[in-house]
Design a protein around this nucleic acid. Structure first.
Lengths: 205, 205
DNA sequence: TAGGGCCAGTCTGTATGCAATACTGCGCGG
DNA sequence: CCGCGCAGTATTGCATACAGACTGGCCCTA
């Protein structure tokens, strides 16, 4: 039985709200605490954690602000996540990689099964998480986990186009295929391409 | 004038104590707060930040522990930092890279000038910080900054040997030389080698 | 009318208080 | 002798309280 602390749940909730743009730019701790039904203490602990990760910015003496959206930031985050994930893949044993494709395709199946226009983002997350799950470097996984939420703020528009969704799913299956045939470097290259194309699509819209 | 918050200073102080091994494995918040002359609130905020970065581990219901030293972890951290720094170098404009070597060598001079057996670590940090200072990706720099303290726990023995210190300084100068001649990829390769050799040295002792 | 300074209200940053849970030491039973 | 249970203490996690900093507006002045 793994005990959850309030600040952990708050981090999830606040992250969701930031991604939805459902939060004032300037955060009022008293109001937000009341709204969430907790005291300021665990709320501030969560805010500090989110500021460490870059989703918020701490303005000493003035509290916390939601980090401003900046197209330039997206152009830096996508390649960063691409490199980090590709690194994680290179640090997964070839044997483990060959065990993944079936489960990966199962998740891809879920994506195709979803009603058109549904939000693929959550399922996509599970796919990537599974892909990297066997990486032997826990610190790298931590960095990835911390960085991805930043990227999701920009990703919201990404799966908007149906044709792009289909294309992305196909890319995921190609990665699984490469792994099945034991082609680690090929899979890594495809993974990077997937992120690059995601950014390219984003830039066009 | 940039205002400092208590938790920031506490993070520095506690980090230093962890690196020196000057802290009980199990952290008692009341005792430590009294010792540092602050209340538990900003102390806890600092501890949470350090746990996020992996220097401490949060044990829900039981507070914070100093993360155990683990040779296996060192074998994962060194290549990780090597990859991250090399990435940062690749994401620095070639023009900016050519501007760095002189200042880098100046810091290397400081290292040679230090009395034998002195702690080179702090100066070495400044060298690397300067090397990466022109990287265009602030998020990557943040990840590096968060990861390096973990590594320094193992590094403490690294500069112990005088001959290794001299060798390391030479490697630093070689990197600066590569940059001077506009050879970015060469510099990157040398940088990775520097980290790899550091780990190899560590493993031998 | 524009600009600056002052003042009250609001909010953050830090300290303190409280309840629940985890630890410690001892006695007891197997 | 070792393991278990239990009572008392210690410690965490969360809530509340307090002091100082920031904000916004009003008035006064040039």
């Amino acid at each position: 039985m793994t005990k959850r602390l309030l600040r952990g749940e708050l981090i999830e909730e606040i992250t969701a709200r930031v991604l939805d743009g459902r939060l004032d730019d300037r955060i009022n701790e008293v109001h937000l605490a009341r709204e969430l039904g907790v005291s300021r203490t665990p709320l501030r602990e969560a805010l500090i954690g989110l500021a460490d990760r870059g989703l918020l910015v701490a303005a000493p003496g003035r509290g916390f602000l939601v980090a401003p959206l900046d197209p330039e930031e997206a152009r830096r985050l996508y390649p960063l996540v691409a490199e980090l994930e590709s690194l994680a893949l290179r640090w997964t044993s070839p044997l483990d990689l060959t065990l993944l494709p079936d489960a990966l395709d199962a998740i891809a199946d879920e994506m195709t099964a979803l009603p058109a226009g549904a939000d693929l983002s959550a399922v996509d997350d599970r796919w990537h998480e599974l892909l990297l799950s066997r990486c032997t470097n826990p610190h790298l996984l931590r960095l990835i986990e911390q960085t991805k939420p930043l990227l999701k703020r920009y990703e919201s528009v990404y799966f908007g186009g149906l044709e792009r969704a289909a294309e992305s799913i196909a890319e995921h299956r190609a990665i699984a295929d490469a792994l099945r045939s034991g082609d680690g470097p090929g899979a890594t290259a495809l993974l990077v391409r997937n992120w690059v194309k995601a950014l390219a699509y984003l830039e066009r819209s």
